[in-house]
Design a protein around this nucleic acid. Structure first.
Length: 273
DNA sequence: GCGACAG
DNA sequence: ATCTTGTCGC
């Protein structure tokens, strides 16, 4: 049943989506609202969450949505929720939330109902926050809909509002020396939209951190740093690992290849079709 | 027609 | 996002 997600929505729908983003953006809070966020050691912070979706190969509509909660500062997984979902909306840059966020909200809701004491105090989201075409990326969207503090963490620079992954940008990246080094991502209007962060000493590619909801960029970057064992923040990394594992266990190999098939799997063919 | 394009 | 194993380097 490899259904495809819908094709590109008509302009009419995109207008509705833009209006929705604008309305929800009015509810966005870009300040630290929690005491632990301003504490030098994040005292009072005990649970950090991460969300992610992994896809079934060759099927842009089937995915596993996962929400994990880790203890802080140990960063050990204390809660996991993986569920297969059928996506409706296609992927479009600038509208990622309309594709993924409903399933993430569902996961948060399940957690609130079943184990309210495990609800995370902050959520790391795979994607951007205010570093976005209209200042309202998936991390903001999830943050406002759940009213949880959220941090946007992207692996690639979203080239928006004058930001370009050009030679100068690459040079700034090259200059990031030690783990924790950063440089600001300044939009056309002079606003700091996010921060490029060298999150691991052996990583040449930075992380692009931006405010999701109920946290300042400064706190977001500092917390991201303290949650990175490897390149990506441990909550997001665990959500990623566990969602793909779930797919492997579920649909990975319904029929394991026979040893015979295995031997000839990559045999070079002279004629094809 | 050409470039851009988080996940 | 996914296609993909081993391999070079600290």
């Amino acid at each position: 049943m490899a259904r495809e997600a819908a094709e590109k929505p008509p302009e009419e729908i995109l207008s509705l989506w833009k209006r929705e983003q604008a309305q929800l953006k009015a509810l966005l809070v870009e300040q630290d609202t929690e005491a632990w966020q301003r504490d030098p050691a994040f005292s009072g912070l005990q649970r950090v969450g991460g969300v992610d979706l992994s896809f079934v190969k060759g099927d842009s509509a089937s995915a596993c949505a996962s929400l994990v909660v880790l203890s802080y500062p140990e960063l050990e997984v204390v809660y996991e929720d993986c569920s297969m979902v059928n996506l409706t909306a296609p992927y479009m840059s600038g509208f990622l939330a309309f594709r993924e966020v409903p399933f993430l909200v569902d996961a948060v809701q399940r957690l609130r109902e079943k184990e309210p004491h495990m609800v995370p105090q902050v959520l790391f989201v795979d994607g951007n926050g205010v570093l976005h075409h209209r200042g309202f990326g998936v991390a903001c969207h999830l943050g406002v809909l759940t009213d949880l503090p959220c941090i946007g963490v992207a692996k690639k620079l979203l080239q928006v509002d004058g930001l370009e992954n050009n030679a100068q940008h690459k040079e700034k990246i090259r200059l990031l020396q030690a783990e924790g080094d950063t440089f600001p991502l300044i939009g056309g209007s002079g606003t700091v939209l996010g921060m490029a962060l060298k999150s691991h000493s052996h990583s040449s590619k930075p992380l692009y951190v931006s405010v999701g909801h109920r946290i300042t960029l400064e706190s977001a970057v500092r917390l991201t740093r303290s949650c990175c064992r490897f390149r990506s923040p441990e909550p997001v990394r665990q959500a990623d690992i566990r969602s793909r594992d779930y797919i492997r266990r579920t649909l990975g190999s319904p029929r394991p290849p026979t040893p015979e098939q295995e031997r000839f799997r990559n045999y070079p063919l002279t004629f094809c079709c």
